[in-house]
């Protein structure tokens, strides 16, 4: 089974690597947000700048996971090749895992320009172990978004997947406190915040990079979201029979 995961990961990496513009696109959005929101407003204070850098990395990861995966999966489903892949002797796991690892590779690359900007233009400070821990937290925290992306991709036609994933993306980022720190948000946003997966995910990143204590409610909800999204994604894969025109 593990060799099939490797096979599917390599296959999807090859496809991605031969279309280099997709990597540029994933790296652009977090880097641009970094320049627009973090450099002018939070550059002076080391802790605030480090936290904000973590938030921008998380925004890029959520975008790649939620929007990127839902669109590619739903578009693939409309290709005859996808029908063929489903006749091969493999269950959903190798393809799921292959997509998740490929998305993680894209995220890891998309993080590089954010880190460069943080190092050059802000007071953000971090040690190497904390940086690696932070990237680990980023990848772990993005798993529920990948699973939600897979779920949307398997249930929606591609045009709907584009719309729905964008509609989910911005509220997720705002409620999770990624654009602005949760403490300065309105009360109802603060009350809702622990219940969206983005909050738990970014808490994990903040904790890993700055050593702050993570909000336990957020972490519990992150775990709950991960399990629920995993169940939903497997269910969606099993009921999927390709696109139907009834």
């Amino acid at each position: 089974m593990s060799s099939l995961i490797l096979t599917h990961t390599r296959y999807q990496m090859l496809e991605q690597m031969r279309i280099p513009i997709s990597w540029v696109a994933s790296a652009f959005f977090p880097a641009a947000s970094m320049l627009a929101f973090v450099v002018p407003f939070a550059a002076a204070d080391p802790v605030a700048a480090t936290r904000a850098t973590g938030s921008m990395m998380m925004i890029g990861a959520i975008s790649a996971a939620l929007i990127g995966l839902s669109i590619t999966v739903s578009q693939d489903r409309e290709q005859p090749w996808n029908h063929y892949l489903r006749t091969l002797p493999a269950g959903p796991l190798p393809r799921f895992a292959g997509r998740i690892f490929t998305s993680m590779a894209i995220m890891a690359v998309a993080v590089i320009p954010v880190l460069v900007i943080a190092a050059l233009f802000t007071e953000a400070a971090i040690t190497w172990p904390r940086l690696l821990l932070g990237i680990g937290a980023l990848l772990a925290g993005s798993v529920p978004f990948m699973l939600i992306g897979l779920f949307l991709g398997f249930t929606l036609p591609s045009k709907a997947a584009i719309a729905v994933s964008q509609l989910l993306f911005f509220p997720m980022c705002i409620l999770g406190g990624l654009f602005l720190p949760p403490q300065i948000m309105p009360d109802f946003v603060q009350a809702l915040s622990p219940y969206v997966p983005s909050r738990g995910a970014v808490e994990l990143v903040w904790s890993a990079t700055t050593g702050s204590a993570a909000d336990p409610a957020g972490l519990v909800m992150l775990a709950v979201w991960t399990v629920a999204a995993g169940v939903a994604a497997v269910w969606a894969y099993r009921r999927d029979e390709g696109r139907r025109f009834a």
Binding site: Y11, E15, P80, W81, H83, Y84
Partner: peptide, 14 residues
């Protein structure tokens, strides 16, 4: 079992 895919859908970049 072995199955033939539709040749129009083969992944182009591989």
């Amino acid at each position: 079992v072995g199955v033939t895919p539709q040749e129009t859908g083969l992944p182009e970049v591989l």
